[in-house]
Simulated scan of single mutants.
Amino acid sequence: MKFRVNRDVLADAVAWAARVLPNRPALPVLSGLLLEADGDDLVLSAFDYDVSARASVEADVSEPGRALIPGRILAEITRSLPAMPVEIATSGSEAVLTCGSAEFGLLTMPVEDFPTLPTAPPRVGAIGGGVFASAVSQVAPASSRDETLPMLTGVRIDIGGETVTMAATDRYRIAAREFAWRPERPGLTAAAMVPARVLVEVARSLRGGEVSVGLGDGVAGFESVGRTTTVRLLDEQFIDYRSRLADDWPIRADLRVTPFIEAIKRVALVAESNTAIRLSFSRGQVLIQAGGGDLGRGTEVLDAELSGGDIRIAFQSQFLLDGLAGVETELVRLNMHSPSRPALITEVPGDADPDFRYLVMSLRLG
């Protein structure tokens, strides 16, 4: 194998594929990146039996071939190379990388020991990359990091014709985002549980265009601009999130989201970890309070438009901030029942059902 490729193109593709490499691979070969050069293309692949990543870039291939190279060291090297073309050629059990006056000899691993990558599942639809990335950023923070409960570490994707809903929960909050997309066939219905960390990585690496989504045989696939990720799906079991988000709310408070976020962050500076942010809503304003323990206390008052009765309610600060960060309008609405029941964060304006909904548990007021 021998090819020549642009340094920035190679470094970007290597970094993207190497992101799925396991920290503690079950087999040594799973720490490698598979390089396949043929025609005018170089394909870089990584696989850990659960997640696969493929990136295809243009290259000047003089000798077609395949090589399995330690992925993390290749990523470190390509990132530090000078801005000159890179040549990689295999010689025996070594891959020689040359860039300007720099040369590295990397020991290769047996290509035949690398597992066969899964094929991309059948395409079921496509969505604009911006909408996809926005939906993932709104929903994924509500997923759990507790690997002992795999169901809670995923994002539920419900497909119903031209509408898709993403939802996630960690038992203390529920985030859901609905958006339109272009299905492969009319009336398509499907559901899948995708690991949240994979969706976040896919969304983070998008460079524009649209995202093609595939589903089948317990695998989901996401393809955009020559880069494909496949992931093994989680068990489809999930809570009935729609019923929990549908309710009549007797108390509503509208306020500007950016000042609200900034005030919470300031006041929370004197709050101990996992303590409450207390919100006291009255006509025309909200009083934000935190602390009162060993560190001190903080208060701030903001304008708020309130309908319904006055209310005092408390939340875990980071949970509240995660919900507010998902709001893409200038105004945010807090829908409330009572101090002891969850509150629903939605965007304003809009008379129709909001696209983004975030239900967060309240904390007992001391």
Rank of each mutant, 00 (worst) to 15 (best):
A271H: 02
V20N: 10
R232H: 10
L30M: 14
G208Y: 09
V360H: 01
R244N: 11
G125C: 07
R156F: 10
F238N: 07
A167L: 10
L97P: 07
Q316A: 11
E103A: 15
Q237T: 13
K2V: 08
M336K: 02
M151D: 11
F281S: 01
D254P: 00
R19Q: 13
A55S: 13
L68G: 08
V257F: 00
R156I: 12
T163S: 14
M151Y: 05
S340M: 09
G187N: 03
E178P: 00
V219L: 14
T119F: 00
F179Y: 08
A89P: 06
W181I: 12
V57H: 04
V43T: 15
R54A: 12
A343R: 01
A67V: 15
F222T: 06
V124R: 05
A175D: 04
E103C: 13
A55Q: 10
R173T: 01
F3G: 07
R24C: 00
A67H: 04
Q285A: 13
E223H: 10
V267M: 04
S317E: 11
R4L: 15
T299H: 11
I73D: 06
L255E: 03
R312K: 13
D40L: 05
A246C: 06
N274Q: 12
N274P: 00
E330G: 07
G298K: 01
P259L: 04
D294R: 11
L68F: 06
L188A: 10
R242P: 06
M336S: 02
R173V: 01
D351Y: 06
D235L: 09
I157S: 11
V96S: 11
A263S: 14
D303S: 15
F315M: 02
D146H: 03
A192G: 02
L117H: 03
G366C: 00
A314M: 04
P195I: 10
G161C: 12
A271K: 03
L365K: 07
D310A: 13
P22G: 07
A268R: 08
G291L: 03
N6S: 15
L233V: 09
G209D: 09
K265V: 03
V96I: 15
T119M: 11
E330I: 08
D217M: 06
D60F: 08
M336P: 00
E330W: 01
D146S: 05
G161P: 12
A126L: 08
